[in-house]
């Protein structure tokens, strides 16, 4: 139990630092940044209390906001992602979730990609619509959501595969 808490604290700090010090500075093609801190929300232990996840996601989003001067957009997007996570889990892993027996390090890669893609798309669309906050630039919102999502999904899947042990 303690090792799980420790692992999550380390993951929280590492992802936050990597996000604000490296990923926020990439600005690929001028405006495309990956937001990999949401891996923390994806990989949060499933059996833990949902309220804890909501609160921790809020704090994580708030810290990213603090570093990137964006008001509360990351907090809002992260909390929403944390709230709908069970639905995403159910739709991408099906029976495994019902039995509460998902191990992210051993699930098959297809479901993992579905799970991460859906989550990233939802997170990014909330993030960018709040950041731009203007109905008339809806095309810009969609453009940013699409390109950043592709970047985030690829990076997230790679990171999860790289850092999970015992993959066959």
């Amino acid at each position: 139990m303690n090792s799980v808490v420790g692992l999550n604290i380390v993951r929280f700090i590492l992802l936050l630092l990597v996000q604000v010090l490296i990923c926020n500075q990439i600005d690929f093609l001028g405006y495309i940044n990956p937001y990999i801190y949401i891996i923390f929300i994806f990989l949060f232990p499933i059996r833990e209390e949902r309220l804890a996840l909501l609160l921790i996601s809020f704090v994580l989003g708030m810290l990213v906001d603090l570093f990137s001067d964006s008001g509360g957009v990351h907090a809002a997007a992260a909390v929403s992602l944390a709230y709908i996570r069970p639905i995403l889990l159910k739709s991408s892993f099906g029976m495994l979730y019902e039995h509460q027996s998902i191990k992210f390090s051993t699930t098959d890669i297809g479901s993992l990609i579905t799970y991460i893609s859906l989550g990233t798309l939802i997170h990014h669309s909330i993030l960018f619509s709040l950041e731009i906050f203007n109905i008339s630039s809806i095309l810009l919102v969609l453009e940013k959501t699409l390109f950043s999502s592709i970047f985030t999904i690829i990076l997230s899947v790679l990171i999860i595969i790289l850092f999970s042990r015992n993959r066959k």
Partner: peptide, 13 residues
Amino acid sequence: LFLLLFSIALALT
């Protein structure tokens, strides 16, 4: 709780 946190974030935004 979700509603509370989301509205705090929205207010800050």
